[in-house]
Amino acid sequence: MRSEASLGLKIAAIAGLLFLHLPILLIFLYAFTTEERSFTFPPPGLTTEWFAVAWNRPDIWPPLYLSLQVAALSTVLALILGTLVAAAMAGTRFFGRDQVSLLIILPIALPGVITGISMRSAFSIMDIPFSTLTIVLGHATFCIVIVYNNAVARFRRLSGGILEASADLGANSFQTFRFVLLPNLGSALLAGGMLAFALSFDEVIVTTFTAGQQSTLPIWMLEELVRPRQRPVTNVVAMVVFIATFIPILIAYYLTRGGSETAGGGK
């Protein structure tokens, strides 16, 4: 009964996939439209002039730099913390293990608006001024689970055997880490890092609460969506943002492909 799917199932599955992808393709089309004020379909004409206009808009560049900076810092923090917790959780059973795993998934299991307002409340109680650091604090918190998910799956697959073999052959813990654990964990960590980067680069909900006066690229886009100034420029930025998050995701996929722990299973 494995051989053939029924026609109805095939149609439903393919229609579902189209439903997921067609809207994104539309963004690409609109980036080239000549229509400035509305979202008329079909576009009356096609042009590439908006790319130049967007390139020369000075208000786009600082948010882009800030987003890159925040994503890089959050990824590094998440990589360290996520790997540590995966190492602790993979090898041993200990009291409170379930509580720890709940604590790790909580920042993505609860709506982002809660993480956002919680942090804002905490910052205001402790008189911490908003800065790049406060944005990173929020982003790193929900990126930990991304790295953790990728790392813990790989840890489980290593299953102690080769780590014990290394110790058996005379390696101390640090040598085992460097020569055996890291090379085998590397691609999973890279994949986790890529996904964490993409997630942070794109995050808007928590950021609106922790950013103060600064704006990241998603915040800039949100403002354009709520109060449009130059729609075609937003179209172009949307397309660029899409491509910018698309690439690390693809890399992450190819890094972990073939394993049971293929990246992206748990966002």
């Binding site: 994104i24 963004i27 997630l199 808007v204 998603p218 886009m221 397309m239 943002v241 693809l250 996929y253």
Partner: peptide, 20 residues
Amino acid sequence: LGIMLPLWSSYLVKVYAWKL
């Protein structure tokens, strides 16, 4: 990939696509 890409691709861009 067909499921994962829409999952991870930019949230705002997806919302924007639906506005269009």
